[in-house]
């Protein structure tokens, strides 16, 4: 067996994560040096998926850039559906990187739109991405416009899976209409629809809204079913943050366990928006446990002061890039939400 095949075989048996990525990277390096373009292309496509599901989008983006270039050189040699499908993930993750300028995100979305139109795909995924991006910029009007365009556009083979689409529609309703969201989530929670990340993320998204509505027991259920689904996985840091928020109100000791377990992954993230979510959850937890902060099994430099500083600094940088104040608002909102939950529990 060739060196790279041995590496790939080993990688195959591993769960997503850095070790798996490292093995695949070595295999791809060998393929590159052998000038095996086709093999290197398909290995990279696999690698991109693993990188995305390991919370390492920066690696996925770099590899995708290479694949896209090969595809553009010889479109008939590679599977255009594969490339365009992966492009969605890439476009989705791009705004998470602070350094990437907004106009580059716009350009990428325009490029994706052009390619979809040329290949005859419906623009459903494009509208969804535009909506997400509008939210990022804090432009609620535009977000609403693209939400409507998105759900009206017919589905085709390029559309996201049902579970993912439902999940995103749920998050649209979650803040304003919990009942509607619960209705939509039924087919996710009874297992009829699912995919890699749904309903794992859906459970987490429901935690605080459910608690706030006074349904404590139901919220616990969501935690007990939802957390095991992401405990061993990488790339779910924003949702782990939601579980930590929930536990900060309901079970601090357990919140600390989650913090200790997932902190290393959060610290190593390049995607600053996910890091922001985690640090924000961690800092609210730290407010509660300051007296025994020193007993935690975490790196020494991670203290309450450090976390709040980081949260504020990341928020400012994002807001500066996005030209609004939505991240700094989010800090206040999350704190208020947690406070509201706490009041709710007291009143019961």
């Amino acid at each position: 067996m060739m060196d790279y095949q041995r590496l790939l075989k080993q990688a195959e048996s591993l769960p997503n994560g850095d070790t798996k990525l490292a093995l695949m990277e070595e295999a791809i390096r060998i393929l590159d040096s052998l000038q095996e373009v086709e093999e290197a292309f398909y290995e990279r496509m696999d690698y991109i998926e693993v990188a995305i599901f390991s919370g390492r989008a920066e690696k996925a983006i770099v590899s995708f850039a290479w694949c896209l270039a090969q595809y553009d050189k010889e479109p008939e040699r590679f599977d255009s559906h594969d490339v365009m499908w992966t492009y969605k993930w890439i476009a989705e993750h791009l705004p998470s990187f602070l350094q990437v300028h907004l106009e580059k995100v716009e350009e990428t979305l325009a490029d994706l739109k052009r390619r979809y139109q040329e290949l005859g795909y419906k623009l459903r995924p494009y509208y969804r991405l535009k909506r997400k991006f509008a939210l990022e910029k804090g432009d609620l009007e535009e977000a609403e416009k693209y939400f409507q365009l998105w759900i009206k556009e017919p589905r085709d083979s390029m559309s996201d899976c049902w579970a993912c689409e439902l999940d995103q529609q749920i998050s649209y309703y979650l803040e304003k209409d919990l009942e509607r969201a619960e209705e939509l989530a039924k087919s996710l929670f009874n297992g009829r629809e699912s995919c890699h990340s749904v309903p794992s993320t859906t459970y987490a998204d429901f935690l605080l809204p459910t608690l706030q509505a006074g349904k404590v027991e139901l919220a616990w259920q969501y935690h007990q079913i939802g957390y095991p689904l992401i405990r061993e996985e990488k790339g779910f840091i924003p949702w782990v943050a939601e579980h930590i928020q929930f536990l900060t109100v309901t079970d601090k000791k357990k919140a600390v366990l989650l913090l200790e377990r997932h902190l290393p992954e959060a610290l190593a993230l390049y995607e600053k928006d996910s890091q922001f979510d985690f640090f924000l959850a961690a800092s609210t937890l730290f407010e509660e446990i300051q007296e025994y902060q020193h007993t935690l099994h975490i790196p020494e430099h991670v203290t309450y002061e450090w976390l709040t500083n980081e949260v504020e600094s990341i928020a400012k940088q994002f807001d500066k890039r996005n030209g609004n104040d939505s991240y700094q608002k989010k800090i206040v909102e999350v704190r208020e939400k947690i406070e509201a939950c706490r009041e709710m529990i007291k009143s019961i």
């Binding site: 983006i61 290479w66 270039a69 090969q70 350094q99 390049y270």
Partner: peptide
């Protein structure tokens, strides 16, 4: 290495992501 191979759009994205970041 990838920057050398890819199109202008992604070359500039890689620049911003990696070189500046």
């Amino acid at each position: 290495y990838t920057k050398e191979e890819t199109n202008d759009l992604f070359a500039s994205i890689i620049d911003q992501m990696v070189v500046e970041g």
